[in-house]
Amino acid sequence: MPVDVVVLVAVAGLFALVSGMNDGGALLATGLKLPSIRPMTGILALVVMLALVPLATHQVALTLVERLATFEGPGGRTATAIAVLSALAVVAFLTAKGRPTSLTLALVGGLTGAGLGWGLPVSLPYVALVLGFGLAAPIVGGLVAWAVTTLLVRFSSTGGLRRWHRVGFLLQTVAYAANDGQKMLAIFMIALGFSDAPPRYTILVAVLFGLGAMYGLPKAGRTLSREIIAFRPLHGVAAELSAGSAVLGCSAVGMPVSMTQAIAGALVGAGVVRGGGRVRWYAAVKIVLAWLLTLPASGVLSAVAAFIGRGMV
């Protein structure tokens, strides 16, 4: 097996583990105050969905592989490895500075920058379109959450809230597997040259994600469930239903968006129903600033690294 394939497969595995650490806790955080779904049950559900949903649809993975840039040419795998490592470096740096951010934004920036730096064909209009959807997802999630929270306050009892929590969590896991979660599969696609979704690779991605989620749940979950708003079970249920709906809508047109961004926007939308005082705006602003830094920082870092790497090769 060529060296560039081996390296990119290893990088793809690392990326799946880090995705579990970064995304898994965020996906489970909204329901931590409702005992309807235990954390390990939630992780198992995520693993199952990540293994099965791409068998039905993997359009978002194809968007990352084929529509942002073309990675099939000479050096494509090396450029992809640079993109992924740059994305991980930016996310690690921002997280260490207390500014959790989106791996999806980082990967889009990394792939775009590495493609440009290596001289690969890059579709800048499509990059702009993906970015537009990414920016819209948390806004749409917040607006939907405001409406959903209002309805739940009026019509849902405590028992009903538990039932809606199960529905919302299921919707959220399906949406993640149909969209944000496919960024992991996309890296394996580039590494190994397939364009479908072989079960052995969807299962591998799902297992690696699950291992990362078990490790990262406490920290990632605390960030969303405690820092953004003075959290109540109602807010978590509304965020699950709203973020899941917004992300599924983007999946239908093959647009990769960040579930963590959608959840954060939905938590803010749920929090303002009874006045903005429940929202911790300083934390929300801190996260938004991290989002704004993530894509350009990943893009510049990967472009410079790819340009240097191409010159060395």
Rank of each mutant, 00 (worst) to 15 (best):
V5Q: 12
L8N: 05
A16H: 09
L17V: 13
G20Q: 05
M21Q: 05
D23I: 00
G25E: 11
A29W: 10
S36R: 10
P39H: 11
I43G: 13
A45I: 15
A51D: 09
A56L: 14
A61W: 07
T63S: 09
T70R: 15
A89R: 02
T95A: 09
K97N: 09
P100S: 02
S102A: 07
L105K: 02
A106F: 01
G113Q: 01
L120P: 05
S123G: 03
S123M: 01
V127W: 05
G141V: 10
G141T: 11
L143M: 14
W146R: 11
V153G: 00
V153Y: 14
F155W: 15
R166K: 11
T173V: 14
K183L: 12
F194W: 02
S195D: 12
P198E: 04
P198H: 06
T202G: 04
L208K: 07
G210P: 07
M214F: 15
G221W: 11
G221K: 10
P233Y: 09
L234R: 06
G236S: 03
A239F: 08
E240I: 04
L241H: 05
A243T: 04
A243L: 09
L248S: 07
M259N: 06
M259K: 03
Q261P: 02
G265M: 15
V268W: 12
G276P: 08
R278D: 11
R280G: 09
V285F: 10
A290R: 09
L292R: 06
L295W: 05
V300R: 07
R310P: 01
